[in-house]
Design a protein around this nucleic acid. Sequence first.
DNA 1: AGATTTCCTGACCAATTGGTCAAGAGAAAG
DNA 2: CTTTCTCTTGACCAATTGGTCAGGAAATCT
Lengths: 215, 215
Amino acid sequence: MTPANTARAQKTRKRTRIQNANEAKILDAGLEVFSTFGLRGATVDQIAAIAGMTKPNLLYYFRRKDDIYLAVLQRILDTWLQPLEAMRADGDPAAEIAAYIDRKLEMSRDNPKASRLFAIEIMQGAPVLAGVLTGRLKQLVDAKAAVIRRWIAAGKLAPVDPYHLIFMIWATTQHYADFEVQIRAMLGDRFDRPDHFETAKRTLEQVFLAGLKAR
Amino acid sequence: MTPANTARAQKTRKRTRIQNANEAKILDAGLEVFSTFGLRGATVDQIAAIAGMTKPNLLYYFRRKDDIYLAVLQRILDTWLQPLEAMRADGDPAAEIAAYIDRKLEMSRDNPKASRLFAIEIMQGAPVLAGVLTGRLKQLVDAKAAVIRRWIAAGKLAPVDPYHLIFMIWATTQHYADFEVQIRAMLGDRFDRPDHFETAKRTLEQVFLAGLKAR
DNA sequence: AGATTTCCTGACCAATTGGTCAAGAGAAAG
DNA sequence: CTTTCTCTTGACCAATTGGTCAGGAAATCT
């Protein structure tokens, strides 16, 4: 993302401090609102209110609602892909998978809004991210699926379909962010106890690692 | 749901054929739209268009948008809870869990819109279903968690946290409905092959059953 | 058949929404 | 200190949205 693509499309002038501060506020507010209501359900007024500025002022930095949405998605895209990218072919399979689960779970805990934003975007048919899904993400998943397949061929992992295994890990880890309200309702008091996250981690690792152990 | 709570709150008059037909059309259209855009993102005009009637005509049957949303949710609530309810304490643990996975997976395949509607409702903070979550659903989950705990105590299942196990099953099975666009993008051509569903089922059962085998 | 009730529609309305604009206030550069 | 640029705002606008209403068209009942 070049610096020149926001704020009145100024011709690569120096970015001011105010600009940086306000754009950051807007992106934070945008994440907050879009991750709850999606692109269509969110209103510019609401984002402006949360960002603590008037609507025309917000629109001075991002001319259309879609621009905010896009910028929010772009800002968190790398973070989103990072855990899978970090899975190394030359590591120990069980350890790598455990580490991947941990990282994704931590992302769910530390950045649940980002997780929900991607979830809503994809559930709405990925109007903006469609290209990323079939492009960058697919390439990444294909590469990691190949890694898993090699681990299986080397007898270090039970033979499972690598794509569906990746889906399982995505699903189980993101679930804690996307369905937080439900988890909270099910766990009651236990949800706020600090060990709740550790219990989730232990359960996931246990089932996945035992389930994937080569026989 | 009593018959008298729609269509102009008529005093328990007989429901006409037209009424049944049109309300069904509206609920179908409502599911279609709400499952994609959520309560706020959906518009009455759009629902009316998909239902094949004018907006005032639709509003003759459901006076407000929220009424449609509520009715759609209520109509599919039982279906949604059914798979978990069907898990029997006196069956073989492995077989019961496998059957639960199968049923949920089939629901994802046969009724993905219902799955996405619940997902969006919960991600938006469950404004309508909050009561169901903390009431009926929690009771059901508590009961089934107790069943799983007894299976573990009897040495028939590896010791895992039953709540997180249920979350895992929910997450992995619903994932195929909620993130269908992403799955499709990752699997490419393979997605439309008829065995795709069987591969998913086999992978899930394999990981869960091996992961839960008592040691 | 006529009477009654249900169903449907075009016209309408107020509120909200995304977005514009002219002009003033504030920073910053000279 | 003045000029230039950035930032902010109130007023405004057209389109969309949720919802109403009076009256006509169809069913249904007797």
